[in-house]
Amino acid sequence: MAPRSPAPGLRRKHLRRRLRTLGFLSPWLVGFTVFFGYPLVATVYFSFMHYNQIRAPSFVGLRNWKYVLGQMPLFGPALWNTLWLVVVMVTLRVVFGLGVGLLVTRLTSGVGLFRTAFYLPCLAPPVAATVAFVFLLNPGTGPVDEALSALGVTAPRWFNDPDWAKPSLVLLSLWGVGDLMVVFMAALLDVPREQYEAAELDGAGALAKFRYVTWPSITPVVMFAVVTGVVQTMQYYTQALVAGKLASGVNTGPGSTVQPGYPDHSTLTVPQLIYSLGFQNFNTGAACVLSLVLFVIAMAVTSLLMRRRAGLLTAED
């Protein structure tokens, strides 16, 4: 016998439940479609078009892809700088943020003062923080150089040296590590005290307690910090651009443009190159190709980190 169809009343009940569920999901669905789905589809579309934002786009096939991946001279340096910042900056920020979090949670007095001192820098706007940092590291006349000269140490040229420009940006990011400190402090304070007491009864030292008690408890938070740090650094734009412009000494005014990446393209990142191509040179097709390449790399790195064999999460997590 054929299965009986549900009663009309039951069908209406299921329909109302589906409509109610869609109603609750509608804000997310609209936001996802408008701010992610449509831009992604449009980016793929324009990557096969010649479009200067003035005339109507015309189909050029794979010409934009061949130009970006095989002929663009700045694509290699920009990609290398971006990946370098992802590896070095994210790693040091996580390690430094965890270290500061451990230090603050171990303090017995002045905890509020130290929390405030470490957290305040991350509240500074990116442009203002970068301007202050370039001033502090100004070669020859900056306070940091003067202090090092008083100690008999020859200071590097910081943002004016291609070998030191990216490490200087890393120092800037470590100065504002207070956001990660707060996240790690919450995770560290959530570790059960009973586990530390049991480890002490077993004769575990400070290193053993961190390895066998603290680390297994905070690995999900470490994973969160690494993944979000990778995504944010893949979009690194403002600090590198402002630092390069200030260090170059070029006086920019209304209507003037400065090519990013000073000195010698050492601070040029893929987001800067995308902006330069799309809004300064009006090469929208090549800019869309770069955006898709950056999106694929970010997705690949994030997927790799989310795998259990990445070593940050155990089987129980």
Score class of each variant (00 low, 15 high):
residue 219 T to A: 12
residue 183 V to C: 08
residue 33 T to M: 13
residue 177 V to A: 15
residue 73 P to Y: 02
residue 136 L to A: 14
residue 242 V to L: 01
residue 108 T to G: 15
residue 223 M to A: 13
residue 286 A to D: 08
residue 193 R to Q: 14
residue 85 L to W: 07
residue 182 V to H: 04
residue 15 L to C: 13
residue 239 Q to H: 04
residue 67 Y to W: 10
residue 136 L to C: 14
residue 134 V to C: 03
residue 248 S to G: 14
residue 138 N to P: 09
residue 49 M to V: 03
residue 259 Q to S: 12
residue 242 V to I: 05
residue 35 F to A: 12
residue 270 V to C: 02
residue 4 R to Y: 05
residue 194 E to P: 06
residue 7 A to H: 07
residue 317 D to E: 15
residue 262 Y to P: 00
residue 111 V to F: 06
residue 15 L to H: 10
residue 84 W to D: 14
residue 130 T to S: 07
residue 90 V to M: 08
residue 90 V to S: 02
residue 208 A to R: 13
residue 116 T to V: 11
residue 145 D to Y: 01
residue 212 Y to W: 10
residue 13 K to D: 08
residue 30 V to P: 04
residue 200 E to L: 02
residue 75 F to G: 10
residue 241 L to R: 02
residue 62 L to K: 06
residue 206 A to H: 15
residue 216 P to M: 09
residue 244 G to Y: 00
residue 147 A to V: 09
residue 21 T to Y: 06
residue 281 N to E: 11
residue 7 A to D: 05
residue 128 A to L: 12
residue 77 P to H: 01
residue 246 L to M: 11
residue 187 A to V: 03
residue 237 Y to K: 00
residue 113 L to F: 15
residue 70 G to M: 01
residue 158 W to G: 00
residue 133 F to Y: 13
residue 218 I to L: 09
residue 279 F to Y: 07
residue 305 L to Y: 09
residue 133 F to I: 04
residue 198 A to P: 13
residue 24 F to N: 05
residue 112 G to S: 06
residue 299 M to C: 13
residue 297 I to D: 06
residue 140 G to R: 01
residue 82 T to A: 04
residue 36 F to K: 09
residue 317 D to Q: 04
residue 196 Y to M: 07
residue 174 L to P: 02
residue 40 L to N: 00
residue 19 L to G: 12
residue 226 V to G: 01
residue 233 T to V: 07
residue 241 L to C: 07
residue 212 Y to P: 08
residue 140 G to Q: 02
residue 153 V to G: 08
residue 232 Q to N: 14
residue 183 V to L: 12
residue 134 V to K: 00
residue 71 Q to D: 14
residue 237 Y to G: 03
residue 102 L to M: 15
residue 27 P to M: 08
residue 163 D to W: 13
residue 207 L to K: 10
residue 221 V to N: 01
residue 46 F to D: 04
